[in-house]
Design a protein around this nucleic acid. Structure first.
Lengths: 255, 255
DNA sequence: CGCATAATTGATTCAGCTCAAACCGAGTGG
DNA sequence: CCACTCGGTTTGAGCTGAATCAATTATGCG
C-alpha cells in the first residue's frame, strides 16, 4: 500500500539493525503450533535483511542454505536465460522462499528478485534441520507450504496452456483484488512489466490485453483495480477451472 | 491386463490379490532410512490395487485420503475442463501420487489416470499421519518427494513458455532415453496422444514436430527412440536452461 | 475381416511475438 | 520555468508458431 511505499510501512521495521524479533515474527505461519521456546531458538539463529526494489536475493543455480521467509514486499521468482525472462511465481509476505531448494541443497532453478522494497528473515539452515527432527509440527508446517507452492505451480501450468493471455490477465487481477484487505481499493502492487513476465507474455501483449479485459468489466485506472462488472469478467476469464482458492489455508500467499 | 508389457513384470506381482508386501516394497524411497518395524506397520495398513490402462485413479476435485505410490506403470496427471485436457506430469514407478493433496485433504487440481497397466500401493492416511509425527525421517522423505515435484512443475512452466514445441519434444525424448536402463534400446512408454497432452500441444503438432526433431538427429522408429546425433539434438533443444537433471536424488521419477 | 481408435498430412486461421515508432510522467539541470 | 533526457507504457504493422478443421492412412483388436 502507500503511494509508492513511502515512509509508513518502512517506519514499522526501521530499527537499529536486522535481528529485531518483533512480536509479529512469532505469528508467522511457519511457526504455527510450535512450542514457544523452539520459536525463540529459531529466531535467535536468524537474521533479517532488507533488499531495495530490483535487488537480487538469490541467483539461479546456487543453493540457498538458510531458510528465507518474506516479511515484507514482493519477491519475483523467474528463470533468466539469455535475454528472455520466464516468470514462475510471485511471493509476498509470509511466504517461504524456495524451501525445497533450501532443505535439500539443490541448485535453484529460478532466481529470486525483490520487486518492491523487501524484508526477508533468514533462519540458519542447521537450526532449521535441528528443529525439523525435533518437531513434527514444524515439519508439517513446511510441508504445508510446499503443498501450496505445488498447487500454485500447477495452476500456473494450467493457465499457461488452457487460458488465453487475456484470461490470464483478468484472472490474475481478480485474484489480486480479492486477496487485498477488503476495505481499501485494490491496487496492483508491481510494475506492469513484471506482471507481464509473471503471466508469461510480453509487456506489449499485456498492454493490449488490459484493454480487452477492460471491455469485459475490469478496468485498471492507474494502479487501482476497478471491477465494474464482476460476473462478466468472471465468465470471461473462463470456466474457472479449479476448485476454491484456498492456498491461504496452506500458508501460501503467493500471486 | 498386461497388454504389451508381457509376462515378466506382471508375473512378479501376479498374486492372489492386493496386499502382498513383497520384499521390493521395503526398498521404496519413501521408506528409506525408516526403522524396519515402522515400514512393516505402514505396509500392513496398505493395500495394493491394479488399474488397467485408461482407468481413472483419482478424479480432480476430490481429496485423496490414502497416500498412494506407483509400483508399476505410468500415471498421468492432467486437468480436464470441458473437452480440452491439459497435462501436468507423468508419474512412474516409485513416485508418490499427489502427496500434497493427500496430506492436507485438499481437492486435487488434476485427475490421475493410468496410461499403462498400473499397480498402486495405497497406505492408510491415518497410519501415514501417525508415522509422520513419530518419524522425522519419514517426514523428510515426503518433503524430498514434494521438492522433486515442485522442481518438475517449474521445469514444465519454463518449458511451456521458453521453448518451442519442437524443443520440448526433443528434450522430453532425450530425457526418456537417458532415464531408461542403459543397456536396452530406449522406448517411448506411452501413446503419442498422451505425450502430446503432457507436452502441452495437440497430437497433430506433436506429429509434425517429431519430423522436425528427426531432422536434427533424433528419430523415433516405432516406439524406439534413436539418437543419431546427440550433440545436434542437444543444441537444437535449446540452451538447456537448467542445471543437472537430479530429480532422482529427490526420489522423483516423473517424466 | 472389419470396426474403432490412433497417427499422419494438408490447408487455413489466429493468438501472441517482434520490431519500430510514438507517447508519457518523472527527475534533472540549465 | 522550460527543455531534455530516460525508463516505462502504449500503439501499430507484419510475421509466425501452433491450433483448428477436415480428410486420409495406419494400427490394432474383437
Amino acid at each position: 500500500m502507500s503511494g509508492r511505499d513511502s515512509g509508513d510501512s518502512a517506519a514499522v521495521t526501521r530499527s537499529p539493525s536486522p535481528d529485531l524479533p518483533g512480536a509479529q515474527l512469532h505469528d508467522l505461519p511457519v511457526f504455527a503450533g510450535l512450542p514457544h521456546e523452539l520459536i525463540e531458538r529459531l529466531i535467535e539463529r536468524s537474521i533479517s535483511r532488507t533488499y531495495p526494489a530490483g535487488a537480487m536475493i538469490l541467483e539461479q543455480g546456487e543453493p540457498a542454505p538458510p531458510l528465507q521467509i518474506v516479511r515484507r514486499g514482493i519477491v519475483d521468482l523467474t528463470h533468466v536465460s539469455g535475454k528472455s525472462e520466464c516468470g514462475v511465481l510471485l511471493l509476498s509476505a509470509r511466504d517461504l522462499l524456495l524451501p525445497a531448494t533450501t532443505l535439500f541443497h539443490e541448485p535453484a532453478l529460478v532466481s529470486a528478485r525483490a520487486l518492491t522494497n523487501t524484508r526477508m528473515l533468514a533462519i540458519d539452515g542447521e537450526a532449521v534441520a535441528a528443529a525439523l527432527v525435533e518437531s513434527p509440527v514444524f515439519a508439517a508446517n513446511l510441508m504445508k507450504a510446499m503443498s501450496g507452492h505445488w498447487r500454485m505451480a500447477v495452476r500456473n501450468i494450467l493457465d499457461l496452456n488452457c487460458r488465453t493471455a487475456a484470461q490470464r490477465v483478468g484472472a490474475f487481477l481478480l485474484r489480486i483484488a480479492d486477496l487485498q484487505p477488503d476495505g481499501s481499493a485494490p491496487v496492483l502492487p508491481i510494475a506492469k512489466r513484471h506482471l507481464a513476465v509473471r503471466l508469461g507474455m510480453t509487456a506489449e501483449t499485456l498492454s493490449r490485453m488490459l484493454q480487452t479485459v477492460a471491455n469485459h468489466g475490469l478496468h485498471l485506472r492507474g494502479r487501482t483495480i476497478v471491477i465494474r462488472d464482476r460476473t462478466a469478467i468472471e465468465t470471461f476469464c473462463g470456466p474457472d477451472p479449479y476448485p476454491v482458492r484456498d492456498e491461504h489455508s496452506l500458508d501460501v500467499f503467493a500471486l
